[in-house]
Nucleic acid binder design. Structure first.
Lengths: 255, 255
DNA sequence: ATGCTTGTTCTGTGTTAATGAACGGATATC
DNA sequence: GATATCCGTTCATTAACACAGAACAAGCAT
């Protein structure tokens, strides 16, 4: 909120806005994007042209689409995370053994970002790159529970306690209690706090330094995730996997 | 080379250059990026600051890294491709059944871009988003063989016939012969034309309209891919898969 | 303590990104 | 089939602001 002498490059902000609206509207033409982004048509046109010349945007019979040049950027962004490299295969195995969708997410800018998933089920909480509030998912809560208290305060200040469903935690004291319980049992449960009737089991992955590197979770519909399967078997499986990943992270250190 | 009245937004080009050098150098500081991109330090700094405010770049103890915001953009770029949605699971099955790495790639801007892969083997021809010349891989040649002749001319004019290894096709007539043979047999073989001792088998995927939508391939080291396994079994398996994908693409039409 | 880094701030100036109107082409409308 | 409306694209002007390079501060190594 406090910008003194703006050191920002406004054209860049503009391009990013164009790209984000294109992402949501694609395929789309100049006019459509300009209207949605509330920018002059000619301006949007110039940006799209520039982006197209570099391959970041593709023109297909008059309509624009995002170019595949973004793939290497996204890939480089997640390849830099050692937890991604260590967890990939483990997540796939976890998902196929349990017969559920399995996810790997990391915290960035106060949100949980899904960086890898294994699908068994159509009911999905979001594709690669999706962000969810840390307070309304098993992965998010598992991460939060391992962050220093000040960081939790920061994040809650910044993002609040969004009420995604009627089960979402919206009270700060309730959150602290929940986090304490998660620390004690080692895993987090989500009973429709993010999406109604969608349940999940998540646990944090700690690095060799003891810092949170991310979280693993499995998720599925209420009717499949219940009873001892939900409350015992899945937590055990998830904890096994986070344990293996943590060991892999240690090996990478010593090599 | 022929720019009349430049309608390009130069700041955008600048940002893209910063991002691309960051992608190759990350984690990196302002000075390192500025030197490599041959841009003034302050300029790079301003761009990085702007990108960081939007989450496209992350600052970790003084060093910059690509932010996870690129994941949704990359994901949106490939999700728009119906062949990606149809081929995902088939590629995984193909790879695990054959015990080889399996790839899905599409042509964009005259290059083959890998948009999905299944790994069984360490020897890899490149991660998601990697581009390879169409003339030096089984996927690329399979795609080329299905493109209209004028398009092939365009692409060869633009990218030439790069000699990646001593086996690469560098003669235009030889290419045409090869493409004709690929059309007849339905699949393409790569005998170390892209990387020495790396072999591959690829076949194109055609859409309901008869246009090329991409190509599937399996690849592995020479010592594993040889004899009837390389020349018969793998081609059969790849063709089976492209066939299934093509059928899926037709279903999606009618739904 | 001193010499190098590094990231960051600053300020003027020249470039150029932004703008809205106008063009021409295609499609839709009646 | 004529007219109207939409689209992408071009254009010219002007104000804005991105750029650059030097100066600053902070860290690290020597």
């Amino acid at each position: 909120m406090a910008e003194e002498h703006s050191t920002e490059v406004s054209s860049v902000n503009r391009t990013l806005r164009v790209l984000e609206t294109l992402r949501d509207l694609q395929p789309a033409g100049v006019t459509k994007i300009a209207k949605s982004a509330e920018l002059p048509k000619s301006s949007v046109y110039n940006h799209l042209e520039t982006l197209e010349n570099e391959g970041y945007v593709i023109k297909n019979d008059g309509e624009y689409e995002l170019g595949l040049q973004f793939l290497p950027l996204g890939e480089a962004a997640r390849q830099r995370l050692s937890v991604y490299r260590a967890a990939r295969t483990e997540i796939e195995q976890l998902g196929s053994e349990m017969g559920t969708n399995a996810y790997l997410s990391v915290e960035e800018r106060g949100l949980a970002t899904v960086i890898f998933r294994h699908l068994e089920n159509e009911i999905d909480l979001g594709s690669i790159g999706t962000t969810v509030p840390l307070t309304t998912s098993s992965m998010g809560k598992a991460i939060l529970a391992q962050l220093p208290k000040e960081r939790v305060d920061e994040i809650v200040d910044q993002h609040g306690l969004p009420r995604m469903t009627e089960s979402s935690i919206v009270d700060r004291d309730a959150l602290d209690e929940e986090l304490e319980q998660i620390r004690q049992q080692g895993f987090a449960l989500d009973r429709g706090e993010h999406v109604k009737r969608l349940r999940g089991v998540g646990a944090a992955v700690l690095g060799p330094d003891g810092e949170v590197r991310g979280a693993v979770s499995v998720a599925g519909p209420e009717r499949e995730l219940r009873g001892p399967f939900f409350e015992e078997e899945l937590p055990d499986a998830v904890l096994d996997v986070t344990n293996v990943i943590e060991l892999k992270l240690m090996e990478n250190m010593s090599v």
